[in-house]
Amino acid sequence: MNEVEKVSQDIYGEIRQSIIHVQHRVQQAVNTGMVQIYWEIGQQLDKACDGKQDEYGKGLLHQVSAKLTAEFGKGYSYANLKNMRQFYRCFPNRYALRSDLSWTHYRMLMRVADSKAREFYAEECAAAGWSSRELERQITTFAYQRTVSQQKTTERRPQTATDKGMAPYRDFIRDPYVLEFLELKPSPEFYERDIEQGIIEHLQQFLLELGRGFSFVARQKRISLDGDDFYIDLVFYNYILKCFVLIDLKLGKVKHQDIGQMQMYVNYYKANMRNEGDNEPIGIVLCAEKNEAVVKYTMGSDNSTHIYASKYMPYMPTEEELKKELRLQELPLAKEE
């Protein structure tokens, strides 16, 4: 490669990055502008229909739609105007709208009837940079209801993290975890290492399923105690909680020995692996089946150690299966008007 070719290649690379950067900023500006104008339209329509009968509102939206469509095109159909009105009603505070979220994101969020769940998905989506497809997956698998802090259970759970003002550990633990992306096929030759290998091969999807703030640290982390070696299946670090997260995988039902082993791992990390400023580690026993009584009585009344037993589902469950697993009586999705 001669000098001209080398310089042209370098300049091409720099120009290419500049173009991509500007394209991204333009696209983001367009998305933000679209969200803002749709909110304004929704606000105006809702105020015009406020206190009026349903037939009045339908007629008004049909007429406004016809006029806007004639001038601006098909983006202002009756169905779209109805969505814009619903958008305003779901998100009445204009200043709380997130520039990171597109209109597609907001349309999905509008399907969530529970306002707390809706806010959870919006916050997590913006913070973690979820695509619209990932947001849809999180909603349809009830990620909010699978978060331990939202569940009513008799199992012993630590309520808060170690530092004042910090988010509770329970806000970052799910039960169950949905691992359909591993594409595991049931087999009598199925081993824990198959799950572990699947997680490593689909690490990005697993990190999304874990939630916000997780980063991968190690696989089969060896610790030695007086000449005996032990191996922790997976180690992560959560930069929001500022702590290590240790995960052990179990094929069958969780046993008291599994929890005791995790207790040892957590105690070891607490004593030997924490850096200055780190909080106490979390231990998660990820199992195919749970026995709440075993977890409860193994842990006893000890609230000083953050250990959880969570079930994993290696397939995409149906809504009915998830409702049964989470003891939900009603779907947390909004009904179409």
Results as ranks from 00 to 15, higher is better:
Q263A: 14
A309P: 00
D226T: 06
R133G: 12
D163C: 03
P317R: 08
V295W: 01
A309E: 13
M262A: 00
K253E: 15
T147E: 06
Y78T: 05
G227L: 07
Y312H: 01
R25L: 15
Q220Y: 01
N31E: 13
K164C: 05
F120W: 11
L68H: 01
S8F: 06
S304V: 07
K311G: 03
A143W: 00
D233N: 05
E320Q: 14
I11C: 03
L184V: 09
P168F: 05
H202V: 09
H202T: 13
H105V: 06
S131N: 08
Q197H: 05
K74N: 09
V295L: 07
M299I: 09
L208E: 14
Q263D: 09
T104L: 15
E136M: 05
H62E: 02
T305K: 08
I240N: 04
A288G: 14
D171M: 04
Y88P: 08
Q28M: 09
K221G: 00
A66V: 07
Y191I: 06
G13D: 08
N303L: 14
M84I: 03
E71G: 02
G252S: 08
Y76R: 10
K164T: 12
V245D: 01
D258H: 11
N272K: 14
S65V: 03
T141W: 02
R222K: 15
E123A: 11
D163Q: 08
L246M: 01
Q43A: 09
A70H: 10
Q261Y: 02
E280S: 07
P314G: 12
G213H: 04
M108N: 11
S115T: 11
N2C: 10
L45C: 08
R107P: 04
N93A: 07
L45V: 14
Y237I: 12
I173A: 05
S304W: 06
H21M: 11
H21Q: 13
E280V: 02
Q204H: 10
Q36I: 12
V30I: 14
S215E: 04
R107N: 15
T104W: 13
Q86T: 14
I259M: 04
L286I: 02
V7H: 09
Y12I: 00
M316Q: 01
T32V: 11
W130T: 10
A309N: 10
S187P: 06
G277P: 14
F236K: 07
D171Q: 03
W103Q: 13
Q53C: 11
S77V: 01
I195L: 06
V235Q: 00
S115W: 11
Q197C: 02
G198Y: 13
Y56I: 04
S132N: 09
P92H: 12
S131W: 03
V266Y: 00
T298S: 04
D258Y: 04
V294G: 02
P176R: 07
Y88D: 10
D46Q: 12
W103L: 15
N80P: 05
V285T: 02
T305G: 05
Q329H: 00
Q261V: 02
E330V: 11
L68V: 06
P168D: 00
H105P: 05
E71V: 11
K116S: 12
Q43M: 07
E276V: 14
E119L: 11
Y315A: 07
L210S: 05
Q9C: 10
L109G: 07
K311M: 06
Y268F: 08
T318S: 15
S65E: 14
F91E: 10
I247D: 00
E124Q: 15
E189I: 01
R137N: 12
G227Q: 04
